[in-house]
Every structure is written in C-alpha cells, then in structure tokens.
C-alpha cells in the first residue's frame, strides 16, 4: 500500500516538476508552479520570416529602393565619433554593393542585443534560478541568472558575445541587466559595433495570450548620445520546436582568408 502510494506520488510529481521546462507542442499552463508567468516555449518575431509564406502562392519579396533591404537600420540614437564615421562608411559601402565583414558571416554568434532580433525564432526556458534563451539563428544562447547572482567585479568580468545577465521579477515582468558584451559584436547589419561600456536593460513580459514583449534598452555612452529602446514582439508557436542550426555546416559565404565571398 505504501509502495503504491509512493508510486502514485511520484507519478503526480513528475509532470509538476517538468512543467518548468515543457517545450512539447501544444497549449501550456498560464503559470508555472512557482506562480511566475509561463514564458517557456518557442517564439518567433511578429512579422518575421516565420510569418511569411514561402510555399505555394508565395509573394516575391519587395525591393525597396536603390539599396533594397540593405539599408542599415542604425543609428538608433545620435552617434559619437568615431562610431559616427564607421556607421557612415558602412552606409556608403552597402549602397555601392561592397560586402563588409560581419562576424555572423563567419558563423560567430550575433551577441547582445542583436541575438534578441531572433529572426527565425527563439526558445525560452524557465528553470530554477535561471532563464535560458536560445535564438535559432546560429544557436546563440544566453543565460539569465535569477537566483540572486550579481555581476562579477569589473576585473573578473570576461567579455562574451551574450554578456553576463542577471534578472529579477517585478510582478509578472522579468527585468534583466546585461553587461560584459564583447566590443566586436555588431548592433545590426550596418556594421556598427557596440563598446565595452554597453549596458542592456530588458523588460520581458506577456502582453496578451501568445504574445511576448521584450523592451530592450541599450545604454552605451561611448557610442550613443542617449539610451535607446527597441520593442520586440514575439508570437508563441506551440506547434514548433527549436531546430538545430549549425552555421559552419555549409557556409559558402566565406573565403579561406576570412573575407566574405560568393558563392
């Protein structure tokens, strides 16, 4: 009898414990056992590539102006020198069809904040003391410590692509602070790099059922005159799971000297 009871309790306990990391297809409970909003799952940006039809009846992508889709989208705020000059050079090169070095073209991770663009989608996992976000693009992964971990002291902070992120909950909003991003990470395709002074604050919350919002505020006093905020919206895709994306599998866009090439 006791054995049966124990077995029964184990069977009950397993789904509850697993709920925090349930990425199986299908609907999910609105809250996790710890009471936090359930953000676990696969998310794709609203209006992104996974919202477009590439099957029968697909429309031809629009070409918008002389540079088409290649107009860099930065700057997000007035730039300081020498970043202003770097940005303007990038703009001229793109207009002239010159392909410039972009670390992601060599299969490097996009880094922060670019990886939160999550062009294909991203997997968010909530586990005890940690939120893990993996962008399908380059399989770029970041860990947000929610167990009270602090940033390391300056001289112990190792610069990384994703940086060092700590988070806490303010009601149903996950507030994240990120420092320690490498200064060769680019903000976007404009070629504009971040600096070692970059600090990123995010407010991540569920706006409505099935919509996740990340308000991403970048403070980088070496690059930008003022902080700027990008608001990104993601759609829950319960039918999808993160797929493997190994960029080095068949990267034909890089030459033996590391320069971008085609094909």
């Amino acid at each position: 009898m006791r054995a049966l009871l124990t077995l029964g309790l184990m069977l009950l306990a397993v789904p509850v414990l697993a709920a925090g990391a349930d990425v199986s297809p299908g609907p999910k409970p609105a809250r996790l056992p710890d009471g936090k909003p359930n953000m676990t799952g696969f998310w794709s940006p609203v209006g992104g590539l996974l919202d477009r039809n590439f099957g029968p009846g697909a429309e031809v992508a629009k070409t918008t102006g002389a540079q088409g889709a290649q107009i860099p989208r930065s700057p997000h705020s007035p730039l300081k020198s020498p970043y202003k000059e770097k940005y303007e050079t990038g703009l001229k090169d793109a207009a002239a069809g010159i392909v410039r070095y972009d670390p992601t073209g060599l299969c490097m991770p996009p880094g922060m904040p670019r990886m939160m663009g999550a062009i294909y989608g991203m997997e968010l996992l909530q586990t005890a003391g940690q939120v893990t976000i993996t962008s399908e693009w380059q399989a770029a992964s970041r860990r947000i410590w929610t167990d009270g971990t602090k940033h390391p002291p300056e001289d112990e902070l190792l610069a990384t692509f994703a940086g060092h992120s700590v988070g806490h909950w303010e009601g149903d909003t996950l507030v994240v602070d990120t420092v320690g991003v490498r200064d060769d990470v680019l903000i976007d395709q404009s070629g504009l790099p971040v600096s070692d002074a970059q600090r990123i604050t995010e407010r991540i919350y569920l706006k409505e059922p099935g919509i996740l919002v990340a308000e991403i505020t970048v403070t980088d006093p070496k690059v930008f005159e003022t902080p700027w905020t990008h608001v990104r919206r993601y759609r829950h895709r319960p039918e999808l799971r993160l797929q493997e994306f190994v960029c080095a599998e068949n990267n034909r866009n890089v030459g033996s000297n590391g320069e971008p090439v085609f094909p």
């Binding site: 090169d93 410039r100 992601t104 866009n253």
Partner: peptide, 10 residues
C-alpha cells in the same frame, strides 16, 4: 531590425 541572417545582401 534587419530580417536577414548571416550576411549582407549587398
């Protein structure tokens, strides 16, 4: 943010 992955389309 740009929709394209990986490399410039220039």
């Amino acid at each position: 943010w740009p929709a394209f992955a990986h490399h410039s389309f220039a």
